[in-house]
Design a protein around this nucleic acid. Sequence first.
DNA 1: AGCACGCCGACT
DNA 2: GTCGGCGTGCTC
Length: 808
Amino acid sequence: MIAKVIVDIPVKETDRPFDYKIPLEFESFIQPGMRVLVPFGPMKRLGFILSIEKQSEIKNLKAISQVIDPTPVLTTELLSLGKWLSAETLCPRLFAFSAMLPAVLKGNYKKIVRINDKESLARDYPTLLDILLNKPEMEWTELLKKEPQQSDSLNAAMKKGYISIIQWIKNDRRTYKRIRYITTALSKDELMDVSSKLDKRSLKQKQVLEYFINQESHLKVEITEILKRLNIGPSSIKQLVKKGYLVETTEEVYRDPYADKEIERTTSLPLTTTQKNALAPIQESIRSQTHEVFLCHGVTGSGKTEVYLQAIEKILNMGKEAIVLVPEIALTPQMVHRFKGRFGDEVAVLHSGLSQGEKYDEWRKVLEGTVHVAVGARSAIFAPFKNLGLIVIDEEHETSYKQEEQPRYHARDVAIFRGKYHQCPVVLGSATPSLESYARAKKGVYHLIQLLERVNQRSLPEVQMVDMREELRANNHSMFSKQLFEKLQDRLEKKEQSVLFLNRRGYSTFVMCRDCGYVVQCPHCDISLTYHRKQGMLKCHYCGHQEPYPSRCPECMGSHLRYFGTGTQRVEEELTKVLPEARVIRMDVDTTQRKGSHEKLLTAFGEGKADILLGTQMIAKGLDFPKVTLVGVLAADAMLHLPDFRSSEKTFQLLTQVSGRAGRDKLPGEVIIQSYSTEHYSIIHASNHDYQSFYDQEMQMRYRHHYPPFYYLAMITLSHTQVTKVVDTAEKIADHLKKGLSSGAQILGPTSSAIPRIKDRYRYQCMVKYKREPNLLSLLKRIQEHYPTGTKNDDLKITIDLNPFLMM
DNA sequence: AGCACGCCGACT
DNA sequence: GTCGGCGTGCTC
């Protein structure tokens, strides 16, 4: 028997199956989708079994050395999904597989020193031996770094053969949480007998026996429980176990990140007529087991989630499974509670806040079939269910569903692949659907479902626009307009809460010299440095470079340096100046770095411990605070002028979403949008809650400029340390494209990227706009093969992104 | 990725 | 004349 194996080396040269003999002892249980250890050249590597065959074309096959998994970690479906994904996104198949699995299952390769001849080593290089014995699994390069004075001895010992370097694969980093229990086979009388025979000094042991005598029955007890109860160390129990009076057992458990949270169970809410009408076609698709994509356009507060929940309920009753995707930032405790509350232990939650072990356990619950619903961010789309009945993608327009590294996939495309495979519906939900999806729905490719009224007839908040140019003319130079300031004051008096939203992108705090206009740039990237007040440092957000805030301008040596832009920190400062009595919670990358701090801040705000919540993107989504009656957007047009054809769409989506945060409960909400471009259609339509008009106008723009959804895009980005090399290659590639594609395709560029240099590498890009190019994938693949790209710093790098979301 | 093979420069 | 640089090429 032969196995076709993809070997764990993520370069295109090895991105093909290799054949291996299956040793007799593995034949009975080996299956596709299992990971194996195989010899590859001089090394041993992990690999994924694609298939098992009778024979092979290749002679002199090597044999699989080890089978790692007792059961497959990739289902047949996921194996073929991996093949499709690597073909569609032009990435090695290994990357596709890795994206589907939790991080703990990835191979961990190390080179370590093995001692061959301990005696000689002890004689000739005793200090070296000491070090090696102390740190037996130390990585070889690490060892050289930490013990540079030993490098001579190391080399000499190596030459003499006392030691050698071997490759070490921690092929299984799976960790299991185990609970240790203590129990006893003895009866109470026997225990008392034992206790009386113990040495007088064994007080602690007697205590332990006492504890068991007083137990109701011979139940097993958690060891930590006993230690805590009796306030003793583990040694006395160990003694008793050793003597055979007590028995220790261990049991493997899932780590449950939500174990210590009490979540109240909920039941289905009665649906409004609109909700019922929305649910009906989805249920029909479920019932008839046909694949269909639904676009559920529901305004904020229209009760989309309840529709999802009841569709899932139906799935569970049929014994099937469901995946629910939510954007990472919307994966708030509030959202999780809703699903846990309805389905309890049926739900696995997968998001970046979990530890590696926790993620593995949640994933394992899916694989082992102990849960039937997976709620998670983008990568949860790969949840290894075998009997999928429904996939929901909430906030469908979110750009975080597109992965920006290999494999550059969009969760929506994967969802549709899986939906077709399982013949089940895919539901895309949004208050502000992406133009691509809405256009498809209008064409009838997707089934459009509308939920255009809020439940309980609550009205959408009133939105007021403020032209900041007029504020300037009225001599108001603060970042708060008169209207916003007055309303903030008003809420403060009424003891109601406000949310202030700052879109920091495009508005970071850069440092400029007021004498000569010099802006402090990163020495490695063509981008200005961002000022971090707390540390008094300037940092580059692309390469991590940092330097102290200069006292003089590096250009003209003038001393009039000043930081510009409106970071959240600056808003906070100004807020405390103008409204000193207001209690402010600031939420941005700086204040939410630590695990759990995100949740803590939100809980504090929810409990009314602050009057104003000030934050970036992350506060725009999914928050539901009844006492918030005012939402202020400080700079609505901040990202309108980014070099991205989706900037209007993003602005519209963000404004709509932020506005939805106001007036979630009985109190009516108000929204103030400050902007320098009040006449821009995305801002006007957002303030009128008018998706349709925005869609129509934006579609005209996309049509005129040949952008999606009228055209598809493919972006090729090259980078190299030398400009000439990049430009040359980019031009050659553009030529290839022009020759290989039809006249209907447009090739733009090569031009320098929006950020022309990152980490000392120059960046050029080519964009292809096309409608139908059946040859595009194979042409791009040939280009990829033709221009060797290495991983060393001075190698050329080519990235190909189909349907890019990041235009830089 | 990691290693061998292989073809050109400064040295015992 | 050799040791060693790292440029291609292969790994079932």
